[in-house]
Amino acid sequence: MVRIAVAGGSGPVSREVIDALMSSGKHDITILSRSAQKSDIAPEITWQVVDYNDKPNLIRALRGIHTLLSFVQILSDPDQESQKNLIDAAIISGVKRFAPSEYGSKGTVDMHWWHGKEKVRRYLEEVNGNERVLEYTLFQPGLFLDYLAFPYKTAKYLDPLQSIFDFQNCRAIVMEGHEGAIITLTTVADLAAVIARAVDYDGRWPTTGGIRGNRVTFSQILEIGRSFVVDQVKLEDLEAGKLKASWGLEAIHPAVPVDQASELLKAVSIGILLSSSKGAWDSSDEMNQLFPDHDFTRIDDFLEKAWEGMP
């Protein structure tokens, strides 16, 4: 049995992972959260309210914990003090393994909303500078394949999220001359399954935990199942902060204030297009190599099932 703490354990991605961990029936799981316990949490899970600014409290909460998985919201903490305090407390408490709040692209170039990840990565390198005091990995599955089924829900907790590939309306936005840009697409269920296996893994975690569900180009996505109207936008416009497309993202992430949504949604579209051309979404495959027998959901099978009978 492994004692696991999940920071930010009330969010949708973390709850997908918790269910995967629980399915083995052999882990003792504690959720660390700023808020009071949700009513639908399984009774065998321990819920502990914490203040991420109170390091002594975090140290007490992490005593006896083997693995700490962080799903702390990056956007809500620009300086990433919450995760830095978690790392400090984990080291003092004797936690063996830590996974910071990643669960996306391998790079953050041109995506300012994720620059906080770089601060946490650098901090982990700093604390392990002279000797390895905390084993950690960066789980990086690329974009959730589930989002290509928007507006339909394909997972228990993960909410649908709109992307530049709009299968419902058969439209997409790509950068002119970069149709061959690579993007990794992995279902949240596959991410959760891989994390659960990594928790059980006896060897040392690789520092980068790339997960390749599907490694495809933009043009390959647009050849699956439907005929798309493609808006081609220019590099110079994107670099100037202009998205000259006939449509834009409208679905708001729960973590984004309504008054900031419009500008952020435009920035997300621009950022994904620019960053994909620089390899930010081409995840490595360390976790695939550790668990070669895991059967990842194929993009064509997923899309066929998701859109079968749908308009």
Rank of each mutant, 00 (worst) to 15 (best):
I4W: 05
G8C: 11
S10D: 10
V13T: 15
S14M: 02
S14W: 00
R15A: 08
D19I: 13
D19L: 15
M22G: 14
M22W: 01
S23K: 15
H27M: 04
D28M: 11
I29P: 01
T30G: 05
L32F: 10
S33C: 10
A36L: 14
S39M: 11
I41F: 12
A42P: 13
P43H: 12
P43L: 12
E44P: 00
I45A: 05
I45S: 02
I45W: 02
T46D: 06
Q48W: 10
V49A: 13
D51S: 14
D51R: 05
Y52G: 10
Y52K: 07
N53W: 01
K55I: 15
K55G: 05
N57R: 08
N57T: 14
L58I: 03
L58G: 06
H66D: 15
T67M: 04
L75R: 00
E81S: 14
N85W: 06
L86A: 05
L86I: 08
D88T: 07
A90K: 07
I92D: 08
V95M: 02
K96S: 15
R97A: 09
A99P: 04
A99S: 15
P100E: 13
E102A: 13
G107N: 07
V109G: 03
D110G: 06
D110W: 11
D110P: 01
K117L: 12
E118R: 15
E118A: 14
E118F: 10
V120T: 12
V120H: 04
N128Q: 07
V133G: 08
L134K: 01
L138W: 00
Q140T: 15
Q140N: 14
P141I: 01
L143I: 08
A149C: 06
F150R: 09
T154L: 11
L161I: 06
L161N: 03
F165E: 00
F167C: 00
Q168W: 04
E179V: 09
I182P: 02
I183S: 00
L185T: 00
T187K: 02
T187H: 01
D190Q: 06
L191I: 02
L191M: 14
A196D: 03
A198Y: 03
D200W: 11
R204S: 12
T207N: 13
T207W: 08
T217G: 12
S219R: 15
S219L: 12
Q220I: 01
V230P: 03
K234Y: 09
L235S: 09
E236G: 09
E236R: 12
L238E: 00
L238G: 03
K242H: 06
G248Q: 14
H253N: 13
H253A: 14
A255Q: 09
V256P: 01
A261W: 01
A267C: 06
I270W: 01
I272N: 01
L273T: 03
S276P: 04
S277D: 02
K278M: 14
K278C: 11
G279Q: 04
A280D: 11
S283L: 03
S284Y: 05
S284W: 05
M287W: 07
N288S: 07
Q289H: 13
P292K: 13
H294P: 04
R298E: 03
D301V: 13
L303A: 06
L303D: 02
L303N: 04
K305R: 15
W307Y: 03
